[in-house]
Computed example of a mutant assay.
Amino acid sequence: MFYWKPEQEVYLIEQVLFKKKYTIREFYRALYKGLHTFKDLRMGKKSGQLSNHFVERIMLAVTEVNGCEVCSYAHTKIALEQGMDEKEIKGLLSGTASDIPEDEMLAILFAQHYADTKGNPTEESWNRILAAYGEQTALGILGATRLIMAGNIYGLAMSALKSRIKGRPVKGFSFIYEAGMLISAVPFLPAAAIHAFILKRMQSPMIQFEPEKAGQGTLTN
């Protein structure tokens, strides 16, 4: 649960925080994947295929799965400033999908599935996104999902460190982990940017599937 106060209004958000914890290796993996598909997100927004509200719904949905406190603050603020309904924001951050537009529901479910599997969605789930939205929009959805995943992983460590400084250490987190994750961003960011650039030049597939993940599980709407 947290409060966000824009000027005189106070919004109460019900959310379970710190639901996941990622390794340094998983952070690097999420970072280069996010950079690999960042251009697709930007193109999707520029073309009008992905509205600002659509992108924020994806980011709020992924943030709910991971339970990142600082990302919840930031994207609640962005969503409210963009004119999104307060009830819908609360619903997304508490795992309720009743107010999501029907044509965006499958994308939101995919984003949640992507986060829940720590970036290892099933091939079947991705094929459903391709069939429903077409390749260009699907890649934009993937780009938004991956970008907030990387942000969440970093944000979880930042949130835990802030909580520790306030005398409320998060169970399962340590100072060494929190500091190490935050410091790792310094060498990781340029390395991940180079990694993503090489993948682009080699025309590597935008998404790959682990053998044990392929065909396991489905998205339901």
Rank of each mutant, 00 (worst) to 15 (best):
E102N: 07
N52L: 06
Q203C: 08
F209P: 07
N221E: 15
P190D: 08
G34E: 02
D40S: 14
L182N: 05
G134F: 08
T122L: 04
A191T: 14
I148T: 01
Q112A: 11
S98F: 10
V70Y: 05
L50E: 05
M206D: 10
E88F: 00
F197L: 12
G91L: 02
G217T: 03
I165G: 03
Q216H: 14
Q136R: 15
G215K: 05
K39T: 09
A185E: 12
F18M: 09
K21D: 07
S174L: 10
E102Q: 14
I194G: 06
V170A: 02
H113G: 01
P190T: 02
A192F: 07
Y22G: 04
T220R: 12
M105D: 05
I141Y: 03
E86T: 14
A61H: 07
V170C: 04
E104Q: 15
A79W: 00
L92Y: 02
A97M: 14
I165N: 06
Q112E: 15
I58Q: 08
G215D: 13
F27N: 03
I153W: 05
E104F: 00
K162D: 12
H53C: 01
M181I: 10
T122H: 12
I13M: 08
A160Q: 02
V55C: 00
D116T: 08
K39G: 08
R25I: 09
C71T: 00
L156S: 07
A115P: 08
I13L: 10
Q112D: 06
K87T: 15
E88S: 05
E124Y: 13
W126G: 10
Q203F: 04
H53N: 13
F197K: 13
T122A: 15
N120E: 10
V65F: 01
G48A: 04
F197A: 14
R25D: 11
Q49S: 12
H113V: 00
K162S: 09
L130F: 08
G44V: 06
L139Q: 12
R201Y: 13
Y73C: 00
I198A: 12
F197P: 01
Q112I: 10
Y32C: 03
L31M: 13
Q216D: 10
E26M: 11
I108F: 02
L12K: 04
I153D: 08
E14R: 08
S98K: 14
Q112Y: 04
L130H: 05
N152E: 02
G143S: 11
M105E: 11
G140H: 04
Q208K: 14
A115C: 11
R29C: 07
A214V: 15
T117E: 07
D99W: 08
A138R: 06
F173E: 14
G44M: 03
A107K: 02
V186F: 13
G151M: 01
L17H: 09
I24R: 14
K90A: 04
M43A: 15
G217V: 06
V65Q: 07
I165A: 12
G140S: 04
K162W: 05
I58R: 01
S174K: 09
